[in-house]
Design a protein around this nucleic acid. Sequence first.
DNA 1: CAGGAATATTCCTGTAAAGGAATATTTATA
DNA 2: TATAAATATTCCTTTACAGGAATATTCCTG
Lengths: 111, 111
Amino acid sequence: MNATVMSALAEPNRLQMVELLRGHPLTVGEIARQLQIRQPQASKHLRVLSEAGIVESKVDANRRIYSLCPAPFRELDDWLENYRVLWEDRLNRLDDYLQTLEKKLPAEQQD
Amino acid sequence: MNATVMSALAEPNRLQMVELLRGHPLTVGEIARQLQIRQPQASKHLRVLSEAGIVESKVDANRRIYSLCPAPFRELDDWLENYRVLWEDRLNRLDDYLQTLEKKLPAEQQD
DNA sequence: CAGGAATATTCCTGTAAAGGAATATTTATA
DNA sequence: TATAAATATTCCTTTACAGGAATATTCCTG
């Protein structure tokens, strides 16, 4: 997994931007307005998102329309695949059981 | 989605720790050794992971055994659910198609 | 073509966080 | 009980980054 993507999403405003763009592409000004931040900050955050490959922009005359790129989300999903075993798999419970057992044994098995 | 989790995973060493712990629980010393970092730094990073709820520790006498907590990964997975449409769904192509159409129309539909 | 709108960029400042070194704390062990 | 091992914590320094303000740039419109 790419730490850059995580880093880009670690900033609350940027995370909000992503959630905002989930609906549909948006203009810088519109993003700034909805997030209640100033335009320069919005541009800067969008730059970070863009450099992380999370977002791309399309020029529309005066405006830039930003939209989400699928790739990093797919990668995140692929990465998470390796961790699904943590909550989906039954082996967890077995593991927990064995560890609990280990804790108990020394006291019960005092021969 | 929680920016704190993202923030915790944004640091390369911590991301590596998580990937390391995916295999099985580990000791602080063992983690430090495998990541080739000093013990105090390992402890500090584990603290951050712990406070983000990504990791938990079990006391074993002299040692602390760290293991992954399922919750944040599940939450991440749930969050991603909303974005799967970005690459899985056919609506994307429809959306692209409509936008392409919009671009073309002004020229073709000159009535 | 002048003015204004939309956006990006630069400079400055404050703050958070990472790493290093030293040390405190707990526990096993000789 | 003194010592060593494993870990956490503290203090210090450096660096990265976020926000503010100002400004440059591009493009539309009257």
